[in-house]
Simulated assay, not measured.
Amino acid sequence: MSRQRPGKAPLPPAEVNIEKLENVINEGNYYGAQQMYKSISARYVSAQRHSEALDILHSGACLQLKNSQVTCGSELAVIFVETLVKAKVPYDDDVLDRIRKIYKTFPQIPLPQDLGEDDDMQQLNEALGAAKTRVECCLSFLKAAIKWSAEFGAHRNGSPEIHFMLAEYVYSESPELDMTRVSYHFVRGNNPKKFASTIVNFMGKCYPGEEDLAIARAILMYLSMGNLRDANFLMDELKKHAQYKEHDLPQSDLIQFINYLLPTLQRDALPLFNMLRTNYKSSIDREPAFNELLDEIAELFYGVQRRNPLQGMFGDIFQMMG
């Protein structure tokens, strides 16, 4: 009589492992749970049971993050996105909601204020380090999600909703604020009204001379994507905020240039466009990337071909933010 070769035990329904792993988390064994989440979900992937692997990873990411285990939670969140790619899961509202749920569980912890003593400075340094880790971890997850969304059915630049999440988190949580990165994702997002209020908030706490750069950068980024509608909307919103005395718009040559540029682009007026660039050259040159953005705008709106092979350098830098 032939003997059957022992095989691997069949995998139980995902809910069984989700409950078991939740108990490990509740016992405070975060590292042990992490290794189990990774190994168990990998077994479901190997068995082509991707949906259950995604359920396990999603549960683990949310639980670890709710328990402030940012590194563990974000690692599972990234594996969740990698599994979406392996399973070729199409972009839709249901998956977007799952990504949003993970995003919402990333901790948002205000930095301590008014510190002065040595012990307090040590506390501040530790808080700054933790904040950097949170931002880097959230960025890794959301950038992976943007890449997946672009490949599997969202806008070619990636999901506007996920871009908005990224911009929002970087602005609110980053200890070293990079408004260029924030703007890059806001203009690929779907909430120009929130972008306007974010710029107003930034203007209330930035260094003198940065206000008009932030406004011009935002407008030019929108225009370099051919998005004249949201560029105009953003400027109108900023003017509304100024009317209600929330923050005055800067009265600078750069803002004057933007105010002239927007109506110019609504017309077939390449000579006027070129004249504006010449007349306001010193203001435009305050940020090197502005000239490349304007070259992209000239190409999009007036069909002007760029000739300099070095052009595109700053565009490549922007792409690294995506």
Results as ranks from 00 to 15, higher is better:
5 R>L: 14
12 P>V: 12
15 E>L: 15
18 I>A: 05
27 E>A: 14
30 Y>V: 02
31 Y>G: 11
32 G>M: 06
38 K>V: 07
41 S>P: 07
50 H>R: 04
50 H>M: 05
51 S>P: 03
62 C>S: 14
71 T>S: 15
72 C>N: 14
72 C>A: 14
73 G>E: 07
74 S>Q: 02
75 E>K: 09
82 E>K: 04
86 K>R: 10
90 P>Q: 02
95 V>N: 01
96 L>N: 07
99 I>P: 09
101 K>P: 05
107 P>R: 09
111 L>P: 10
113 Q>F: 13
122 Q>A: 15
125 N>R: 14
138 C>G: 13
149 S>N: 06
150 A>G: 10
156 R>Q: 07
158 G>V: 02
166 L>E: 00
167 A>D: 10
171 Y>I: 12
171 Y>G: 04
173 E>T: 09
175 P>G: 13
184 Y>V: 06
185 H>Q: 08
187 V>C: 01
197 S>E: 09
200 V>T: 05
204 G>E: 06
204 G>H: 03
204 G>W: 02
212 D>T: 08
216 A>G: 03
218 A>Y: 02
223 L>V: 01
225 M>T: 04
227 N>R: 02
228 L>M: 01
230 D>L: 00
241 H>M: 10
242 A>C: 09
244 Y>C: 08
244 Y>M: 11
249 L>D: 07
257 F>Y: 15
269 A>V: 04
270 L>G: 04
275 M>P: 06
278 T>E: 11
282 S>R: 13
284 I>G: 01
286 R>M: 06
287 E>V: 11
290 F>I: 05
291 N>Q: 05
292 E>G: 00
304 V>E: 05
305 Q>E: 14
311 Q>T: 12
313 M>E: 14
317 I>R: 09
